[in-house]
């Protein structure tokens, strides 16, 4: 029989243990850190105010002395659900438009991986949210779930339009003010010119409401025409 030199084996065994140990520690630490990171990812959307309102309306706590919770009128609950649907539509549109951009940017390396993870989580959450809204709607009124998002979509479109209009309307005061000032200044200039006949009209023909982009407007006519001409020749 041959005898084993146990002491000679200590070194290789140590090597294997150290190597294995290093890999194990690395992988556990790495995984833990990854899990921590993905758990701490900030949500894509801010807290869903409309959903919170709706849920708190549904589950009203009984107040002070009374035993029963205050009865919330059906119409209020429905309105709250509709508001929630409007906000959902708003969010789903954001996600839809951002999806293609986000994935292409991720491929190019212009945005990070954790953004994509957050994005996908938000997407899943939105799916759940939509399903939940449909179920709630069906519970409140039969078959409402099929139409609630259509109405919500229209409400949203209307709201955006109104917002835009308000923005434009808000400028009217300033514009009016400017125009009054401008008119008086032009008037005084004309008066001056009328009084002083010999002076030539110089500032009167200054463009008043002409679009600024004249440098762009001038070449636009010629080149396209020229290129058309060229193509026609051939």
């Amino acid at each position: 029989m041959f005898s084993l030199d146990w002491w000679g084996l200590v070194l290789p065994l140590c090597y294997v243990v150290v190597l294995g140990g290093t890999f194990m520690t690395f992988s556990t630490i790495y995984r833990k850190r990854k899990a921590m990171e993905s758990a701490n990812l900030a949500p894509w959307f801010p807290p869903h105010l409309q959903r919170n309102i709706y849920l708190s309306l549904l589950h009203m706590e009984p107040e002070g002395g009374s035993e029963k919770a205050p009865k919330v009128p059906e119409s209020v609950v429905r309105a709250a659900l509709l508001r929630r649907a409007v906000e959902d539509i708003h969010r789903i549109i954001q996600i839809r438009t951002a999806k293609a951009a986000c994935s292409s940017l991720l491929q190019r390396g212009s945005v990070g991986d954790d953004l994509w993870q957050r994005f996908q989580r938000a997407e899943k959450e939105m799916e759940e949210e939509l399903r939940d809204v449909v179920m709630e709607a069906n519970a409140l009124a039969p078959n409402w779930g099929q139409t609630i998002f259509q109405s919500a979509n229209e409400i949203l479109a209307n709201a955006t339009l109104k917002e835009r209009l308000d923005e434009i309307q808000a400028q009217t005061e300033k514009e009016k003010e400017w125009w009054e000032k401008r008119r008086t200044s032009i008037k005084t200039e004309f008066m001056k010119e009328l009084g002083d006949d010999t002076e030539k009209v110089t500032s009167g023909d200054e463009p008043v409401l002409v679009d600024t982009n004249t440098p762009s407007a001038t070449p636009s006519a010629t080149p396209s025409g020229a290129s058309k001409k060229k193509k026609g020749k051939k």
Binding site: T97, L105, V111, L115
Partner: peptide, 22 residues
């Protein structure tokens, strides 16, 4: 991983993406 293709910090690029509006 820390920097995006445009040479800014990845975190900044992520935040800018969130700030984008049509």
């Amino acid at each position: 991983l820390r920097r995006s293709k445009e040479g800014v910090l990845m975190e900044s690029a992520n935040r800018l993406f969130r700030e984008y509006k049509d």
